[in-house]
Design a protein around this nucleic acid. Structure first.
Length: 360
RNA sequence: CGGGAUGUAGCGCAGCUUGGUAGCGCACUUCGUUCGGGACGAAGGGGCCGCAGGUUCGAAUCCUGUCAUCCCGACCA
């Protein structure tokens, strides 16, 4: 077809709304147009590209024996209430668009499809002889991101390939997992992308393993950490590391930890304490007060102690808290610093006059 | 939600300080010339100056409110 018939509208200048190269180029070359915040029209040229990418994904997944399907975007709340994720995804994360139909039934636009696929599996799978089954779809997903940005990088409506497999035993699961791993590597390679598989957090809902295939880029949205020999890579939420050796305390009364009262007026951070008393950050313990909110209304204060030179990984904390309390109290909706204002608004009381409300 | 910035033609921007008939480049239309890697000339069209109030004889410009967008942060199964 002639280019003149492609409805190809290009721009000579970078649109002011675009910041990163991919966003600027997609706009300027006439591939996408923004329709709303985090919502884009895929113009004819981009749709051709997307179909070619989809074709690669289909070929590689079909080759592993996976079956393509297409699941509904609109999903009844009941499915999500049964899995215990409705409250967490609507009230907590708020990532799920939800609405009521004219009969007053609650529905959500699918940010993911585990609920639908497991309901179908329960309905259709009657015998272990039917296993394993691996179903996938290439489907529009909706996630009400708190801050859509960077064009297609973090949109609220986007196309995703998702696959779900069912197995009779763990050996079979591992086999499929390995097949998926190989398929993903081939997909990225055929698309001309160099991807790194990293260990990732599998979320509060659980799961024993999670890998993410990352393509490194300046404009990336995550930080991955890798060991020098390349044998370990994980994203920031998941990565484990050995803490740097702490500095031993100097001799004298502080050495035995036997107690020496320090006067710390106005010193509200580890940095200020170190500056005032000649400590190294690793010689102090920082104490954080937080308040966890649960689905059933429970407000659970948390006290977290960390070595002074370390920082709290909120994802790891959320996972730990969730593992301990979610069974009894439902989804963890959020964890906030326990400030004086929060105490007031929650109607709790605690003497916080001497506790720092600054960041740590 | 907190912090910062910006809304003027399809895109990029000037004009606002100091109120007085809305401009530039690109794009678009017509005619002519040109013609193997983003052509040239001439003539044109296009604006609720984000929106709503207010001040004023008069508001793109000053004041108040509001909406939207972008950036940083929180968040990201």
């Amino acid at each position: 077809m002639r280019v003149s018939r492609l409805m190809l509208v290009t721009l000579r200048d970078d649109p002011a709304e675009a910041e990163i190269p991919s966003h600027k180029l997609l706009l300027r070359a006439g591939y996408i147009r923004r329709v709303g915040s985090g919502i884009y029209a895929y113009l004819p040229l981009l749709w051709r590209v997307l179909r070619k990418v989809s074709a690669i994904v289909r070929e590689e997944l079909n080759a592993t024996g996976a079956l393509e399907t297409l699941l509904p975007q609109l999903q009844p709340a009941e499915l999500w209430q049964r899995s215990g994720r409705w409250a967490g995804y609507t009230a907590g994360e708020g990532i799920m668009f939800h609405l009521e139909d004219r009969q007053g039934r609650e529905l959500g636009l699918g940010p993911t499809h585990e609920e639908v696929i497991t309901a179908l599996a329960a309905d259709l799978l009657r015998s272990y002889r039917q296993l394993p089954v691996n179903l996938y779809q290439i489907q529009t997903k909706f996630r009400d991101e708190i801050r859509p940005r960077f064009g297609l990088m973090r949109g609220r409506e986007f196309i995703m390939k998702d696959a779900y497999s069912f197995h009779a035993d763990e050996a079979c699961l591992r086999q499929t997992y390995a097949a998926m791993d190989g398929a993903y590597r081939r997909i990225f390679s055929r698309c001309g992308l160099r991807a790194v598989a990293v260990e990732a957090d599998s979320g509060a809902i659980g799961g024993s393993a999670s890998q993410e295939f990352m393509v490194t880029a300046e404009a990336g949205e995550d930080l991955i950490l890798a060991s020098g020999d390349g044998r370990y890579a994980a994203n920031q939420e998941r990565a484990v590391s050995l803490p740097a050796e702490g500095l031993p305390l100097p001799g004298g009364i502080r050495a035995g930890g036997s107690g020496e009262e320090l006067s710390t007026p106005g010193q509200r951070s580890i940095e200020e304490l170190c500056a005032a008393h000649g400590f190294d950050a690793s010689q102090l313990v920082k104490v954080l007060l937080l308040l966890a909110r649960f689905e059933d209304g429970l407000r659970q204060p948390l006290l977290v102690s960390l070595r002074g030179d370390q920082e709290l990984n909120e994802v790891k904390l959320a996972n730990a808290v969730s593992a301990r309390l979610s069974a009894a109290h439902g989804a963890l909706l959020g964890i906030d610093p326990l400030t004086a204002e929060l105490l007031r608004s929650e109607g709790l009381s605690l003497d916080l006059t001497s506790i720092s409300t600054g960041s740590v």
